[in-house]
Computed example of a mutant assay.
Amino acid sequence: MNILVIGKKGQLAWELKQQATSAVNIFCVGRDDIDLFDVDSIAKALIRNSVDAVINACAYTAVDLAETDVDRAFLLNATAVENLAKVCSNNNIAIVHVSTDFVFDGNKNTPYLVNDVKSPVGVYGESKSQGEDLLQATSAENSCIIRTSWVYSLQGNNFVKTMLKLMAEKPALGIISDQIGSPTYAKNLASTCIYAAVNNVKGIHHWTDLGVASWYDFAVAIQELAVEKGLLNKAIPINPIQTKDYLTPAKRPSYSVLDKSSLKTDFSGVEQVHWRKQLSLMLDELLNLQKSKLDKL
């Protein structure tokens, strides 16, 4: 099976590439390989790679910058998605599209269901929500939408790597404790996307690692495990702060836990793991990577 991944440098695209097998070929394409604003360019890329399914791991994810860079956010998160959907629909090719918890406003206090009314609170969420709508309107019979949250990986910029850097440099940190969600290791998210493509899963689904945390909880766990594994030399004070004390250009959902009920049936072949266990696994892999680099010196 040939799966074309839209995205080349992002953390999810990188994790997807690592999971290529003799049975599942993964081709990652970037802006130099495909023009997402030209349906002919998209069609040529699909034909050139004899594509059976597409995984769209490309998105405008700069949440704060999107508040002023509105046009570009909607171009990449909505217009480009519609173009992909058109080509996939015309060629009967399955498309798996990765979306976000930011399509919800965060005002619930119970996990968001896949069919809950969307109500994004910022440009990033609005653009991703519109991308979902355009995809379903254009290629509902061939599409699978996977919403996720708080994604991190060995590759790229993310909360875990940022925390490790700051914890090694700063005497103390203040981390937001009143935003609640679920961390997600991109490796398992990649497995889920591939499973959806291979098994022709349709509809909207939610995927995160199991469990719930605040950003403060997440940061505390990162430090505890990193010190235990020797990635950090010492622990520093981590203080809980409120969102109102750390204002950003874009508003974030205060509660964005996603209900994952559909996984029991539609994704029965993918293992769900608690976020802390996944974090430990990622830090082990990071440690091994660092040791490998040292051995080559």
Rank of each mutant, 00 (worst) to 15 (best):
S50E: 15
V51E: 00
V51K: 05
D52V: 01
V54Q: 09
V54C: 03
I55M: 05
N56K: 03
C58V: 09
Y60T: 07
Y60K: 09
Y60G: 00
T61S: 14
T61I: 13
T61P: 04
T61M: 08
D64A: 10
L65E: 14
L65C: 02
E67C: 12
E67K: 12
D69Q: 12
D71H: 11
R72E: 13
A73D: 08
F74K: 01
F74V: 02
L75D: 11
L76Y: 05
N77G: 01
N77M: 06
A78R: 02
A78I: 05
T79C: 00
A80M: 03
A80C: 05
V81T: 10
E82D: 04
L84Q: 07
L84S: 02
K86V: 12
V87G: 09
V87D: 06
C88K: 07
C88A: 12
C88H: 02
S89G: 11
S89F: 10
N90H: 01
N91V: 06
N91S: 13
N92H: 13
I93Q: 09
I95T: 04
I95E: 03
V96W: 00
H97D: 09
V98Y: 03
V98F: 01
S99L: 03
T100V: 08
D101C: 11
V103Y: 06
D105E: 10
D105Y: 09
G106Y: 04
N107M: 13
N107L: 14
K108N: 12
N109E: 13
N109H: 12
P111Y: 08
L113G: 01
L113Y: 11
V114N: 01
D116R: 08
V117P: 10
V117A: 15
K118A: 11
K118Q: 14
S119V: 08
S119K: 13
V121C: 12
V121H: 05
G122Y: 07
V123Y: 01
Y124T: 00
Y124L: 06
E126H: 10
E126C: 12
S127F: 10
S127A: 14
S127R: 00
K128F: 06
K128D: 01
S129G: 04
S129M: 14
S129P: 03
G131M: 03
G131F: 07
G131K: 03
E132A: 05
L134D: 04
Q136R: 15
A137K: 15
A137D: 14
A137T: 13
A137V: 09
T138C: 10
S139W: 05
A140R: 14
